[in-house]
């Protein structure tokens, strides 16, 4: 049961963390009215995954191995792009907030609010089919034993609980630090998702080098251990990482982190009102 629990935890954790941060973000901006839309995105992703998973499990249709990897890989890379966009968008919105120009935040959310919904949808749906196939397989096993389903269910609930704890934790941070902390956190998550997507595409045969490993620490971090599940579930750390995965991770993380730190330090945090006003003008034009 523990083994199945760890699969559920690993598959659900990252999505729960991202959604937890999104919720905290909207609460911080006092835009709880966008929350129903966010939950709609999450609900749609869950329903779509479970539905597709059920069709594939119980119907006559099947999904070939390559297709599943291709879907997982492509969605992961799209998710990375969207989360990266969101990190910088959140930061710019934060700056607008500093000028206490209420309607600017509202303008941003008019377009960007749906962006957040799509991010929530992708965060959950990215590996949703894989998780759904695993869950339905556990359901199918209930004829012999209910332990796998129980384990998988508890694992996913545990992931949701951890997402909630993250929400509780970050929502208390003061606004200035909030965007820095969640931004760094999301960049690390997004980098992991990108590396994961690259690995999926390597498995599908679209990208080469599946067996050319940069490092293999499976001895120190057994993939079926609870800490490997936590590492995989949060930052997508895989004990056996290919060179292409490692390269994608580094090539993403370094420039994005550099840009993020530059954006964090950039002037315009309501110190100089004239400058801030002009910068928000630019942002508004960019957003509309």
């Amino acid at each position: 049961m523990i083994a199945n629990l760890l699969i559920g935890l690993r598959e659900g954790l990252e999505a729960a963390l991202v959604v937890g941060i999104l919720v905290a973000y909207l609460v911080k901006l006092q835009r709880r009215d966008v929350l129903p839309r966010l939950w709609l995105g999450v609900g749609l992703a869950v329903a779509l995954s479970l539905g597709l998973g059920a069709v594939l499990t119980f119907g006559t249709l099947g999904l070939s191995f390559e297709s599943q990897e291709l879907i997982g890989g492509t969605l992961s890379i799209v998710a990375t792009a969207l989360v990266t966009w969101m990190i910088f968008w959140m930061l710019r919105t934060a700056r607008t907030l500093g000028t206490s120009l209420r309607h600017d935040v509202d303008t941003h959310l008019a377009g960007g609010g749906w962006g957040l919904v799509i991010v929530a949808f992708l965060a959950v749906g990215r590996e949703g089919i894989e998780t759904a196939l695993f869950l339905w397989a556990a359901v199918q096993a209930t004829g012999q034993t209910t332990l796998p389903l129980l384990g998988a269910g508890i694992g996913i609930l545990l992931a949701v609980a951890l997402g909630w704890l993250i929400y509780r934790g970050v929502v208390r941070i003061d606004l200035g630090r909030f965007f820095a902390w969640t931004g760094f956190f999301l960049i690390v998550i997004a980098a992991g998702v990108l590396a994961y997507g690259v690995h999926d595409l390597q498995e599908s045969g679209l990208l080469p080098g599946l067996h050319v490993l940069a490092f293999d620490v499976s001895g120190a971090v057994p993939p079926d251990s609870w800490y490997a599940a936590l590492l995989k579930g949060t930052i997508n750390f895989s004990p056996a990482t290919t060179w292409l995965q490692a390269a994608a991770w580094v090539l993403y993380t370094i420039p994005v982190l550099a840009l993020f730190i530059r954006a964090l330090r950039a002037p315009g945090r309501a110190k100089d009102s004239a400058q801030t006003d002009s910068s928000t003008e630019v942002i508004n034009q960019g957003a509309s």
């Binding site: 049961m1 083994a3 199945n4 760890l6 699969i7 598959e11 099947g62 999904l63 070939s64 191995f65 990897e69 894989e130 196939l133 695993f134 397989a137 556990a138 199918q140 096993a141 012999q144 034993t145 332990l147 796998p148 384990g151 998988a152 498995e203 045969g205 599946l210 067996h211 993939p223 079926d224």
Partner: peptide, 30 residues
């Protein structure tokens, strides 16, 4: 937890793979 692989005759290239097969579970790879 186990995984199942189908490899090409070079014993290297993955033709098919299914992961996340928890104890007591049956999963398909096509």
């Amino acid at each position: 937890v186990t995984e199942f692989y189908v490899l090409a005759d070079d014993g290297n290239r993955t033709v098919g793979e299914v992961e996340n097969i928890g104890p007591g579970i049956t999963r398909d790879v096509r």
